[in-house]
Amino acid sequence: MTSSEPEFLTAARTFYDAVADDYERCYGGALAGATWDRAVLGAFAELVTAAGGGRVAELGCGPGRITGHLAALGLDVTGLDLSPRMVELARAAHPAIPFEVGSLLEPPYADGELAGIVAWYSIIHIPAGLLPRVFGEFRRVLAPGAPVALAFQAGEGSLRVEDPFGHPVALDFRRRRPDAVEALAAGAGLTVTARLVREPEGDERTPQAYLLARRTG
């Protein structure tokens, strides 16, 4: 962290460092019962493979459960997360996959380096005014035509989560309107090719949205 780091990044790192172990214990196996998540990730993997493959990145990878699934689908994948503790857990669970600490605001990849990006419930912590910058960075690091898979809670406003698992931390989870996210992505040079909104399941409070896009131009 630097003195110039935005406050929302500091808050998110503090939150996820605190809850990382409990989060992994509770949600590490959740993908096995997440039919729609696996379907979208499977479609993303097929798009990457059909385009010739190459390295893909999960940005906001947490403890690596999605990253590991992408590797199991045959992708050459790396993971990036703001939380050092989340990265530690990801490396321990998936020692063959490279993980590093970093931010969606400045993904540490060269121009056109990546064959795909997955941002799975990570844009929910980005203030709306910074989403164009984030999507612009996605476009910068993607090869032409490369796919992007986004997942986020659909809706308006935000949910403030306080004292999760008994830890004295709090964080805002921002809900997004799919049409607004699509417009911001398009403005940054990411053309949406598929969209899905499903109803809440289990203890979810809002519909869940998935967008598949590709880097244009």
Rank of each mutant, 00 (worst) to 15 (best):
M1S: 10
T2N: 13
S4D: 15
S4W: 06
E5I: 03
E5C: 12
E5Q: 15
E7A: 15
F8A: 05
A12N: 14
Y16N: 01
Y16T: 00
Y16W: 13
D17E: 10
A18P: 02
A20I: 00
Y23Q: 02
Y23E: 04
E24P: 00
R25E: 04
R25T: 02
G28C: 03
G28K: 05
G29W: 01
A30D: 15
A30N: 12
W36H: 14
W36I: 14
R38A: 07
V40S: 05
V40Q: 12
G42L: 11
A45V: 09
V48T: 01
V48N: 01
A51C: 04
A51I: 07
G52W: 04
G53K: 06
G54E: 08
R55M: 10
R55Y: 00
V56E: 04
L59N: 09
C61M: 04
C61V: 01
P63Y: 08
R65H: 14
R65T: 15
H69E: 15
H69Y: 15
G74L: 09
D76S: 08
V77D: 00
T78P: 00
L80T: 00
L80W: 03
D81W: 05
D81G: 04
R85C: 03
M86K: 13
L89N: 01
R91G: 10
R91S: 10
A92S: 15
A93V: 03
H94T: 00
F99R: 04
F99C: 05
S103L: 05
L105W: 03
L105M: 10
E106N: 08
E113A: 15
E113T: 07
A115W: 07
G116S: 03
G116M: 03
V118K: 04
A119Q: 11
A119N: 09
W120I: 07
I126M: 02
I126A: 07
L130T: 14
V134N: 13
F135I: 07
G145T: 05
A149R: 11
L150E: 12
L150A: 14
Q153T: 14
G155E: 07
G155Y: 07
E156A: 12
L159A: 14
E162N: 10
D163K: 15
D163Q: 15
P164C: 10
H167P: 03
R175H: 11
R176S: 05
R177M: 06
G187R: 12
L190T: 01
L190H: 03
V192A: 09
T193E: 12
R198S: 06
A209V: 11
L211F: 11
R214Y: 02
